[in-house]
Amino acid sequence: MSKFKKSGKNIYIALFLTPALFMFILIYLWPLCLSIISSFTSWDGFTSMKFIGLRNYRELFNDSKFLAALWNTFRWALAAAFIHVPFGVLVALILSKKMIGWRFVRSAFMIPNIISQSAMAILFTFIFRPDAGILNSVLRVFMGPDFNANWLHDSKYAFLALTQIWLWFAAVITLITLSEILSISPELYEAAKIDGANVFQIDIFINIPLLRNIIGTGVIIAITSVFKMFDIIYMTTNGGPGNSTINLAVMSVNAIIIQNKFGYANAIGIFLLILGVLVMSMTMRGFRMNKSAMD
């Protein structure tokens, strides 16, 4: 810092931030303002925006669908943080050892993420179909020919089945973690080896602590994408049977396209945002992400 003139540097800071801030204002801030305002109205997509105070928010907490959506979101967030992300990191750690075939696996793992979510959803409806579905065909080999389960549409299994559509496809986590691991200096490993550390210890005591920041990032990315998960639900169960697979994003969109309740939909969106900010700041604190990896 000492070498820069303070004012000159400030100009650079402003210059470097301007494009991103401009994008933010254009794509997020203005829509957000509109959402916040309309969440206090009974706006139906037509010209009149009638102010109704907190009624949308009060209605939310009396809506059994909302409570179900909240509960589902909570469980999915846990699954994202404790299964999805650890799995992605695990795969990255294994891949980083560069065992034979690692490049192939690395590229292959990305394929389900390259296929769009709505296409994955369509695909899984074929996997989970009761009669000629792939899963049931396999299970019949073990459980006898009479075995039948309607995975996505039986309230006993629907939640679990829907979770499988995204749970294991953690290639994004793997991608960001792997590039981080590969930039760790090999000398560190050499030193650890000389100290007698084995490969498990190296992963646990050297790699994972160094990856703290990126794992935190991964947790945030995973949880927020669960919060916003839409196509997967919409194209398979649309929240059913009953409310067993509903989430807030689907609820909000349905409020618009089925009921024309823009105000209510935006109240759901704002609630989701507040929830997200809380979870995000908790995660950042938990992973001490504002400190650099060196501290």
């Binding site: 991103a20 801030l21 933010f24 254009l26 794509i27 997020y28 203005w30 829509p31 957000l32 509109l34 959402s35 997509g45 945030i220 990315i221 927020t224 919060f227 916003k228 839409f230 807030l248 994003a249 909000s252 969109v253 618009i256 823009f262 939909a265 935006n266 759901i268 969106g269 989701l272 945002l273 997200g276 900010v277 995000m280």
Partner: peptide, 19 residues
């Protein structure tokens, strides 16, 4: 800026269109 991660794009159709 990070809050943008939390705003569900499906719910922003209307304002983005008008922009």
């Amino acid at each position: 800026l990070i809050c943008s991660l939390l705003i569900p794009s499906n719910a922003m159709i209307q304002p983005i269109y008008s922009t």
